[in-house]
Design a protein around this nucleic acid. Structure first.
Lengths: 168, 168
DNA sequence: GAGCTTATTGAGAAACCAAATCAATAAGGC
DNA sequence: GCCTTATTGATTTGGTTTCTCAATAAGCTC
């Protein structure tokens, strides 16, 4: 009923992208842009690549520095613009709010999931629990609400001792 | 098992503070300050009063403007400092993040509760569901986490038609 | 490939919120 | 009332995101 995504009892493996994923995503981006007469550009693709290769769960500032590292010539404004674009294109999505309230992004995933933050190792884990989902639905409807969505972040301590810098 | 706090099928009544509550809170604040050799001051109390009389679920900016309205002489820095102080004193607490990611504060409450945001009327409702709470606990522990806390916001449409300005 | 239209870019400025700085002020113990 | 020192308000700073705008380049047409 409940499954922890992309990780087991050990430190979770990160979703890694092979080059074929990169190609697929590039095609999706190109299609999205073509559809609305927008242009596929070097800087835009550099932002996308930086995100795709940097792994899951990045804040804007992480994305900005990943891109800057890859190519210092890309302007910050361009990065922010590209983040919004990639979200609109369904390639990136807002994942959750970090402990300090900043938006964390992740590569868009078809399957809905929520997040557990570990206060020890600072890592973000994904999980999905159908029972929890339906109970939320029920609770809302009992109270006279029709549920549109939810933001659900569990905060705990994991047992996969791996140290990663905790951050604010 | 599940209860919607401070509101029924109709538009929810706001938690309102009588003057006796104000007095009680003032005493608590004075005690807190005395304990750590901090000072009870006019501006601090003005911030507290502004919050207590303005109702539930305020963002920093709401608090700043409520205080400014009450006394334009109080500096912004003082308001921000007082907000933190009142949180430390257990009089105020962070409630949740608004749709736009700003921290929403509320007068601290002994009973734990979560929030439902209505996308139609923009209002914030409080609810508590024991089954939901324990299922979260279980989900976390199943996965090898010991649960420390959670952030849980349901988003839906309420059936208490009241119009309040939706805000970003 | 050249020419043309127009979306996009990067740099810098601006907006925004929250926190830090600091000299002037005032709380509260004596 | 005095004195110590926490607190204040004005201002500056820091950090993040957006806006502006002239220069650039994407990608269509020929």
């Amino acid at each position: 009923m409940s499954r922890l995504l992309k990780c087991g009892r050990e430190a979770p493996a990160r979703r890694k992208l092979g080059s074929e994923d990169l190609e697929a995503i590039r095609s999706r981006l190109e299609a999205y842009l073509r559809e609305r007469q927008l242009r596929f550009t070097e800087p835009r693709w550099k932002v996308a690549e930086s995100i795709l290769l940097s792994g899951l769960h990045l804040e804007s500032r992480d994305i900005v520095s990943a891109v800057k590292k890859r190519d210092p010539g890309v302007g910050e404004a361009t990065v922010y613009r590209a983040i919004r674009l990639l979200c609109d294109a369904g390639i990136l999505e807002e994942s959750h709010q970090s402990a300090s309230g900043r938006t964390v992004y992740e590569i868009a995933d078809d399957e809905h999931h929520d997040h557990i933050l570990c206060t020890d190792c600072g890592e973000v884990f994904e999980f999905h629990d159908e029972a929890l989902e339906s109970l939320q639905e029920q609770t809302a409807s009992n109270q006279g609400f029709s549920l549109v969505g939810h933001r659900h972040v569990l905060i705990g301590k994991c047992s996969f001792k791996q140290q990663k810098g905790k951050r604010a």
